[in-house]
Design a protein around this nucleic acid. Structure first.
Lengths: 191, 191
DNA sequence: TTCTTTATGTCAGTAACTGTCATCACGGGG
DNA sequence: CCCCGTGATGACAGTTACTGACATAAAGAA
């Protein structure tokens, strides 16, 4: 017979799945880490080996977001104007959300209802912004243009994310982001 | 003899003072809420009646900051250009720091060393920014100009705060903020 | 095989935070 | 002058997030 793993695969993914199910079912505060671990067939201690704290289980995607952002940026020709490079990188990152609007909505509902989760979201965004600014500097963009461009890019991403969740037409996130950059340019040029 | 209060006055202030002393002496993590309460001559339970959590004891000033910001804004003539109103309000708020540079430096050291305190700082700043934006809207500033102006004002405040702490010339915070707005205008106008 | 690494379990412990009830000064009627 | 409501505090038990230390067993390398 096939190999018997002692451990069922993808413990981290099971923990995340269990956490979402329980948070949606009985609320974030009402769910203990022990509950999550039990549903995933693991122990509380193992949860904390995969996630630094209870909040982190809701932010597993931010690492992938940063990776994609920096990867896309790295592929672009250096001669590209800064804002165009940021636009393309942010659009690339925004495609990660494809097909996950319902999930993103549920997650947003949970985060919006808990101040400590909003704190975590803010620091994740700040970290992402700083990483983008640093990557731009390494492309040769001087300060403070690099930080300003990073801030603008993340602002468009953030505002666009909210619009995407509520968009009645159900447009793609990347499309909304694309429009967002157009509007940013219009505002910045005083139109 | 004078009236004997059952309780010594200013319990909240004593808790804050005790917290700062202990944080600086033995570190933030190494200080328990019980330690703070004991030094203040109170119990742990009473600490949590004055501060929602351990972090909050380091953020008592943010309410005063917001009050002063909005108060100053309310006194200005409505005809004033938005950015000028923001400038004056932020400068007024920045005078609250007068004579507290050493204290602010120590506080900054503590906050910078602990991720959870940075989270709290970010959400305080976001709250302040939102309050400023709303106040501007009530002055008749339309969106998104109100939010953008609020963001700019808080950005100048934040950047200026860091410069003030390190300023070798020891200039006043308000003076540094004033310069910051000049630089902001220069950047925004493409100079 | 044997050794090492890695993922997990077990268990005890700390400390943040909460709910509940008791206590005691103050102040205002009656 | 006494009673009573209010408000700040104490006492105390309980929950839960999180950590450290050690044990265990599968997976993989030698």
């Amino acid at each position: 017979m096939g190999r018997m793993s002692r451990w069922k695969p993808d413990a981290r993914g099971r923990l995340e799945k269990a956490a979402y199910e329980l948070f949606l079912d009985q609320g974030y505060e009402q769910t203990t880490v022990a509950d999550i671990a039990e549903r995933a067939g693991l122990t509380e201690r193992t949860f904390f080996r995969h996630y630094a704290d209870k909040r982190e289980v809701l932010f597993g995607g931010s690492a992938a977001l940063q990776d994609e952002l920096l990867r896309a940026l790295g592929e672009l020709p250096p001669a590209l104007p800064t804002i165009e490079a940021v636009r393309i990188a942010v659009e690339a990152a925004s495609t990660l959300m494809h097909g996950r609007r319902a999930l993103a909505r549920e997650r947003q509902r949970i985060v919006a209802a808990h101040a400590d989760l909003q704190e975590r979201e803010l620091i994740k965004r700040a970290t992402l912004t700083a990483a983008l600014a640093q990557a731009l500097q390494q492309r040769g963009v001087p300060e403070p243009a690099a930080s300003l461009a990073a801030d603008m890019g993340m602002a468009v991403f953030h505002v666009g994310f909210g619009r995407w969740l509520d968009d009645p037409a159900g447009r793609e996130f990347a499309e909304i982001v694309h429009e967002g950059f157009n509007q940013l340019k219009a505002v910045a040029s005083g139109t």
